[in-house]
């Protein structure tokens, strides 16, 4: 496993009086798969969304490949182009085809020629098993298919890091597997991933490290074996007893 690619120090975020992140510290190494678990409202999404500045923290620092996201001179769009994100609700663009969903940003942001972007998009669609859906409308896809397209769309920007915010929570149970399979393949290829999920099987199998968050803090972290089989914290034990 490589050098630190994400370094979060003393990260704080609140919405009005509601403190959501309390001095979070986190380091993610290149090619590492970090799984974040924790009860609803513990700040998992907020932490993830700070990593590509969809939320702006009021204190602390986030560095990606050593560059602070909060420096004045930093072009945030450049950072975001390097950090892919997959959302619980897919967020495909409903007014364009699957293919256009995938090529939009490579063409508009990376200034890739259309044909080249399309070739790349077909490659990615093949990878997620949906090459026959290139011209389909997002609305015509099942949840599992939509999420796989969303993953392909993020990958089209050739990100160095992929963030997943409960990518299977909105799916019917029979579709969870197909999405997790794509994520497993991605992890095996060495993608650096931060994954918020309730899929403990996935966490155990693919995760290099598990973080347990509660009330805006990382309460416990370690290998999946450590955290799942012999949690040190009572709060972790309590949470796991409810979800496992």
């Amino acid at each position: 496993m490589g050098d630190p690619i994400i370094q979060v120090t003393d990260l704080c975020k609140s919405y009005g009086a509601n403190t959501v992140l309390r001095s979070v510290n986190l380091e993610v190494r290149r090619q590492e798969v970090v799984v974040v678990i924790g009860p609803s409202g513990s700040g998992k999404s907020t932490l993830l969304r700070c990593l590509n500045l969809l939320e702006v923290p009021e204190q602390g620092d986030i560095r990606i490949e050593g560059r602070s996201l909060l420096d004045k001179g930093v072009r945030i769009t450049e950072i975001r182009a390097e950090v892919g994100m997959v959302f619980q609700r897919f967020n495909l663009f409903p007014h364009m085809s699957v293919l256009d969903n995938i090529t939009l940003s490579p063409v508009r942001v990376r200034k890739l020629p259309k044909e080249q972007a399309a070739v790349k998009a077909f490659e990615l669609l093949r990878k997620v098993g949906l090459e026959d859906k290139a011209n389909a409308a997002p609305d015509s896809l099942s949840g599992g298919q939509a999420q796989r397209v969303a993953i392909a769309r993020a990958l089209a920007m050739e990100p160095k890091i992929m963030l997943f915010d409960e990518p299977t929570s909105a799916l019917d149970p029979e579709m969870v597997g197909e999405v997790l399979a794509v994520m497993k393949e991605l992890a095996a290829e060495g993608m650096t991933m931060v994954v918020v999920t309730h899929e403990m099987g996935f966490a155990r199998e693919v995760g290099d490290r598990v973080l347990f968050m509660e009330r805006g803090s990382i309460v416990e972290e370690g290998t999946p074996q450590d955290v799942f089989d012999c949690p040190r914290e009572e709060r972790t034990r309590l949470f796991l007893s409810k979800v496992l």
Partner: peptide, 20 residues
């Protein structure tokens, strides 16, 4: 979520507005 997806793909606010 549409705007957030556009931003997460590196689009500027102007691009997100215009294309999404």
């Amino acid at each position: 979520g549409q705007r957030e997806a556009a931003y997460s793909l590196g689009m500027t606010p102007g691009q997100a507005m215009r294309f999404v």
